[in-house]
Simulated scan of single mutants.
Amino acid sequence: MTPSWLTIRQGTAPLLLSLPHTGTDIPAEIEDTLVSPWLARKDTDWFIERLYDFAAGLDATLIRTTLSRTVVDVNRDPTGISLYPGQATTELCPTTTFDGEPLYRPGHAPDVADRRARWFDPYHAALQDEIARLRRLHPRIVLYDGHAIRSEIPRLFPGLLPHFNIGTNGGQSCDPALQATIEAICAATGLTTISNGRFRGGYITRAYGRPADGVHAVQMELACRAYLAEPVGPVGPETWPVPYDPAVAAPVRAALEQILAACLAFGADPT
């Protein structure tokens, strides 16, 4: 039985969409230990599930958690190894925001082992099951990991982040032709685009992207100003998050529709 915090929509197309950071739910016993409910949700990948809601019409498979990344970050290496050695990042169970603000009141550190067992492991079991199911249907599939982040976070990166940040673990997690196709679609928008820059792909991309085994994984990290009327710079409860406006999101959503269509075409062509 699928737990209430986990959404799994099974499709038959050779495309699996993972949305690991769109949730805002925090169990009461955890929320009581936090400094601020707003800080705990500050780094959510806001409205990404709405931006990609067209994927169901493509018969793509979708896996999404409604839990906040503050509860557990299912896109971090469970062993604690940093995805970005030497650079600031957050943990499997984050103790600070991206800006370095403490999330927990003194004496209330998270029980990492418990949270891994309760939430991280089931998310990845679902991913593994769906990858295996789709591979039984198709010679190759695309695992697309959808993310977003505020455009300016000095602790994590200098200046403004490019609008489109494509991560393929330095080209190891997918076929170069697929990466090139996605890059071309992004570039055609006229918005800034980079591959394997500050964001090379998180644990999901790196753990499951195995082109030789027919699984091609791509992470897309959008700067929030690409699809929201983002107040670039420091934010507070009064200014963040901004509402989702379909008109503001429309240009990037159109590009994402082309990208997922390209992923489907790639998956459907075994040559």
Results as ranks from 00 to 15, higher is better:
121 D>I: 07
204 I>K: 06
109 A>N: 12
109 A>V: 09
172 Q>L: 10
245 D>Q: 09
109 A>E: 14
73 D>P: 06
98 F>S: 09
177 A>T: 12
232 V>P: 09
257 E>I: 12
155 R>P: 02
207 A>R: 15
45 D>S: 13
87 Q>R: 06
23 G>W: 10
206 R>M: 02
265 A>I: 11
245 D>L: 07
13 A>R: 11
104 Y>K: 03
165 N>C: 09
178 L>V: 10
31 E>D: 15
147 H>Y: 10
132 A>K: 15
25 D>R: 03
5 W>D: 13
119 W>P: 03
98 F>R: 04
266 F>V: 05
253 R>I: 00
51 L>N: 10
5 W>N: 11
163 H>K: 04
96 T>P: 08
31 E>V: 09
172 Q>T: 15
173 S>Y: 06
197 G>E: 13
124 H>K: 00
126 A>T: 08
206 R>C: 05
4 S>Q: 15
29 E>S: 03
197 G>F: 10
101 E>H: 00
123 Y>E: 12
4 S>I: 00
105 R>P: 04
259 I>K: 11
188 A>G: 00
37 P>W: 14
157 F>H: 08
34 L>E: 14
180 A>K: 13
9 R>W: 06
163 H>M: 06
76 R>P: 04
111 D>Q: 06
198 R>V: 13
124 H>P: 02
138 H>L: 00
22 T>H: 09
132 A>L: 12
24 T>L: 04
75 N>E: 13
107 G>H: 14
239 T>K: 01
50 R>I: 11
125 A>M: 02
160 L>D: 15
194 I>R: 04
205 T>A: 12
143 L>T: 05
95 T>F: 06
97 T>I: 01
162 P>R: 13
61 T>H: 03
240 W>V: 02
1 M>A: 10
134 L>Y: 10
37 P>R: 05
112 V>T: 15
78 P>G: 08
25 D>N: 06
143 L>G: 03
164 F>E: 06
